[in-house]
């Protein structure tokens, strides 16, 4: 897997998210209250809302458009809603964040 550096953990506010633009679309990168990081496609399974703009609580985000709650770990909608969004491999090394687009690129190709 090849990793691309996208900046440092502190670029993202706690309980917040930032976007990464990629040829395959926007990716939302989240940082929780406890400094766990996650990356998922910035595209709500409901009607495509930008998940990066939602409120982050625990390891989940609430979509800003119609309040679906999406698990950051699995990309699945929680509760009564059904649907899921692709998760992107992410790792932290010495405070620097890396994501891997290999999986996404394979599927796109």
């Amino acid at each position: 897997m090849s990793w691309v550096s996208i900046g440092s953990m502190t670029d993202i506010p706690r309980r917040g998210a930032r976007c990464v633009e990629t040829p395959l679309g926007k990716i939302a990168v989240f940082r929780t209250a406890e400094d766990r990081v996650f990356a998922i496609e910035d595209h709500c399974p409901h009607k495509g809302g930008p998940l990066s703009q939602g409120i982050v609580h625990g390891a989940a985000v609430t979509c800003p458009l119609h309040n679906w709650v999406i698990s950051l770990e699995t990309g699945k909608a929680l509760g009564a809603d059904d649907g899921s969004v692709r998760t992107i491999p992410i790792k932290v090394e010495g405070g620097v964040l890396f994501i891997s687009l290999a999986v996404a690129a394979d599927r796109a190709a």
């Binding site: 090849s2 691309v4 550096s5 996208i6 900046g7 670029d11 993202i12 506010p13 917040g16 930032r18 976007c19 990464v20 633009e21 990629t22 040829p23 395959l24 926007k26 990168v29 687009l101 290999a102 996404a104 690129a105």
Partner: peptide, 16 residues
């Protein structure tokens, strides 16, 4: 931070 993407990844990086 709200208004800028944190990074922009080009084709080359993504395809690597």
């Amino acid at each position: 931070h709200e208004f800028k993407p944190m990074a922009t990844i080009g084709m080359a990086d993504a395809a690597e």
